[in-house]
Amino acid sequence: MNAVVMNHLSKKYSGGKAAIADMSLTLEPGEVFGFLGPNGAGKTTTVKVLNGMLQPTGGECLIFGENPSNRPEKVHAISGVMTEHAQMYNHLTGLENLIFYGAVFGIGEEESRKRAQELLWQLELSDAWEQKLSAYSTGMRQRLSIARALMHRPKILFLDEPTSGLDPESAHNVNQMIRNLAKDKGMTIFLCTHQLRYAQEICTRYGLIDEGRLLVEGTLEQLRAGMGSGMKLRIRTDRLPDSIAGYTDADKNEKNRGEASGSRERQGAYDIELAIKSEEEIPRIVSRIVQGGGNIYHVSAKRPSLEDIYFSLTAERR
């Protein structure tokens, strides 16, 4: 059974703007899906619709076969949701909060306490569990929310910006945890984020949305292929044969040419970046420089990161 199915899903707020427009997407169980897009793209709205907090205005969606707009409680029993607007009680301690939400999910107090303590330990909140939530920092609250979403051991976890307020260590730790949940427990993860570097570390597949539309989806390899490889070769040398200079010309890459000539004027050395189609071109280029009498100080090939892909796709739309 698919973990998530969206079938021409649309949501228009009563204000009139379409926050989700005709979105179709399927997630397999165990996927870590990175849902990316600029502010106001419709990520949070999608999470809310998928969990029955909002009624879709068109199309339909299923979470493990359950329809959240008809039976949201069925979906909630198997999904854990962490969003910015789903907070906990300030007058209760971290542990009391978790035990309360455990009970709301029908878990007995002893079992809740056990799970809560384990999660608090994993999220490095062990020192704070006796503290009232009102004394928690933003990052601590956020980590407690992740613990809360995991109390009932959901099959699918929806995380809306889980690491945006976290310090680098905590963010790293949370990412590690998300990755392990998927790997060891087979949990499906629906991750909305702006932190593309972290996303690239843990996601198995991506969807990029803007203005409620799904622009592309696929694995990193598929996204790269969609961009026509996009591989960049960086070379530092003291001499550039014309044929290579011509190579950059032929590529009509204004920026690279500018850089190449710029560095020539400054230091009599070249530090160039070439767009190539495949790795096969690297030895040819290198040998041409060497045959032309040049010394090579640096060669590296870089594949486009998620960030590069994101920028080139969003730039296309502006």
Partner: peptide, 14 residues
């Protein structure tokens, strides 16, 4: 007002 309503609504209660 405390932003805890959404959390409660994510529960398996109708």
């Amino acid at each position: 007002e405390q932003s805890t309503l959404e959390t409660l609504l994510y529960s398996p209660l109708t």
